[in-house]
Amino acid sequence: MGFEELLAIYEGKLVKEEHRNIWVSIELKRGEITDPSLEVLGKARQLADMLGTRVEALVFSSKREVAEKLVRYGSDNVYIVKTFPQGKFNLETYAKSLTKLAKERKPEIFLFPHTYTGSAIAALVAANLETGLVTNCVDLSIDTSERVLLQTKPIYNGKLNVVIYTPERKPQIATLKPGSAAKPFEDELRSGGISTIEVDPGEIKTKVIGEEKVKIKRDIEEAEIVFWGGTGLGSKENFDVLRRLAEKFGATVAATREAVEMGLAEEDITVGLTGKRIKPRVCLAFGVKGSYENLAAVKAKHLIAVNEDEEDPIFKIADLGVIGNPSKIAELMVKKSS
């Protein structure tokens, strides 16, 4: 034990013995560990090294390969959680199981990827454990003098960032925004423990009774992801390629006024001052030059433009610009994403 830590104990600041370790809730998609989960794992690793504690990953899966992979990505310990009723994903089961485990095993910090499910489970667990939660964090760090987790989150569309901490309660729970931390490297030589734990979540009141694919919204004004085609696509056939691409990404298709006038698409999907106005999260523009008429109608969180001419105004405004032939790139993207 180092001098600092001794001093900390002296000052009563060291965490009470029973709360130790950083937990990471791992999400799977089609059996594979998602990138946001790995990013959280990487972040947890850094924090654990600062705190001199261990990283433990929890995953609802019985596959051993997944657990081994988690070890290679930085987990000191992996719990494969078995709960019942088995089968379909159920928010309530997951939340109750994790609550129970956390109550018994008392992690110091509990991290989740900030996804739809991750944030909901984190919220339920935090309320059940009567402790603090900060969601959508873009940064996590440790205040070593007080041994607390500093959680940074953007508010008001990122106009302001706040650093929040949970001073007294444990575990300190946070969800990490995807893309805010680097995905760690897979270290073949890393070793760690893997164990399976069974939890009885108690009474489960909700029941999944059906599943369906959600149809892509045709309502452009409400769409979260919009693929926007302009005259740069050149032909109706190329515009159809854009449609196919959109299908693959669950995006809604829009066209510029100029493209509609060229006959590439129908009137009712026009986005522009003379058409519909949109506020999507992601807007991918293929062959859109970016006139005032075009761009004044678009408020996208992320605007990506693919176009041939570097001088096009859209490149002044886009977050990411790709200089190249839009139809060709769209076509390749369709091929590669099937």
Partner: peptide, 11 residues
């Protein structure tokens, strides 16, 4: 106002 801001933004 919108137009002037747009023109500013596009260089």
């Amino acid at each position: 106002v919108k137009f002037v801001k747009f023109r500013d933004a596009t260089g």
